[in-house]
């Protein structure tokens, strides 16, 4: 075993040189990716990266602090609208607007965190669900926000270059995603993250050790909302057009699925969950046009059920997936990854 010489080695991100090696490989992969793929694939990758950002934030709240939110689509909507409106009305550049939108979302997160202090479990779930729905209802009824028709997103300019293709946007989005993943990893291994985990494990003990529950719980909501807000701003850019129906209840549920499937309380879990669930979601959306399965499902659907119900197949499958993970692999894909790692450690013995 390697000898530790400094206490920082306890908590450093790359515990062994081999970790640095794999990270560099990953970075090279991310750089090469746009050179070897089509524009359509890049739009998929962008969408996945944005969902990873939301999952990172939601995991802080759900996985680390042990709270729940069924309304994260609301924060994403706030971030998206704030970014667009700040650019349109105040004439801000994209980056300042994005950061400010993150803070606007964080502000709402803080406000939602206040009543959440008195709520737990299913009650908190209902309260956050109500919040998410209220946001889209309010946006949909106000002409300032473009109502049901939505808003057109202005083209973004960075240093005089207008970004339009998915490959150009990829550079911006993936840099932000990597930075925010690292920031989240930093937070969770610091004093603040430790306090949040302590609240999840035993709030009474955390309190008697001097952790201010009210402050840290609302802080967790705020940081989580900040991540969702920034993701919302990026989402607006890749969509080019936003309206309230994008940020519906199903979106919130999908974010929660990403956390559970990926692994609650793990950064790698957020990343894996974001990738896998987004990918599945996009593929299942077009399930009827898939070879073999598509025809089979249409056949089943027309024979025993209604034809119009077929798109719901996606929700059914996600429901099954969630149940299976909660029952058989509560640590999600991250748990599976840990077991694979353990197995290979002593291979071939």
């Amino acid at each position: 075993m390697d000898m530790k010489r400094h206490y920082y080695e306890d908590i450093q991100i790359f515990q062994k040189p081999v970790h640095v090696f794999w990270f560099v490989i990953l970075l090279i992969g991310l750089v090469i990716l746009p050179l070897v793929t089509r524009n359509y694939t890049m739009s998929l990758v962008n969408f996945i990266a944005i969902n990873v950002i939301v999952t990172l934030g939601l995991n802080l709240l759900v996985g680390y602090t042990g709270q729940i939110s069924l309304g994260h689509a609301g924060f994403v909507a706030i971030g998206a609208y704030a970014t667009v409106l700040l650019m349109q009305h105040l004439g801000l550049n994209f980056f300042p607007a994005l950061v400010l939108a993150g803070f606007v979302a964080a502000g709402f997160g803080f406000l939602l965190g206040l009543p959440a202090l008195r709520l737990e479990g299913p009650y908190l779930a209902i309260a956050t669900l109500g919040f998410g729905m209220a946001v889209t209802q309010i946006i949909g009824r106000s002409t300032f926000f473009g109502g049901r028709m939505g808003l057109k997103v202005p083209k973004i300019n960075i240093a005089g270059i207008t970004l339009s293709s998915d490959k150009e946007l990829y550079i911006v989005i993936i840099s932000i995603t990597v930075l925010m993943a690292f920031a989240m990893r930093n937070l969770t291994r610091s004093r603040v993250g430790r306090a949040l985990i302590a609240i999840r494990e035993s709030d009474i003990a955390a309190e008697t050790l001097g952790v201010n529950l009210a402050w840290y719980k609302t802080l967790s909501f705020a940081v989580s909302a900040f991540y969702a807000g920034v993701a919302g701003g990026l989402l607006a850019i890749i969509f080019g057009y936003i309206n309230p129906s994008i940020f519906d209840f199903v979106m919130s549920i999908l974010f929660l699925a990403m956390v559970v499937v990926g692994g609650a309380g793990a950064i790698l879990g957020s990343i894996l969950g974001g990738i896998v669930v987004t990918f599945l979601d996009l593929k299942l959306n077009a399930v009827t046009s898939m070879p073999l399965i598509g025809d089979l499902l249409r056949e089943i659907s027309t024979r025993w059920m209604s034809v119009s119900g077929l798109p719901n197949f996606r929700s059914v499958l996600f429901g099954i997936l969630l149940i299976l993970f909660v029952v058989f692999e509560p640590h999600g894909l991250y748990g599976i990854w840990l077991r694979i790692k353990k197995y290979w450690k002593t291979w071939p013995f």
Binding site: Q12, M184, N186, L187, S190, R191
Partner: peptide
Amino acid sequence: TNIWHGLTMFHK
């Protein structure tokens, strides 16, 4: 250590 210090704990 506050939230900002935590998020920016990039090096030793």
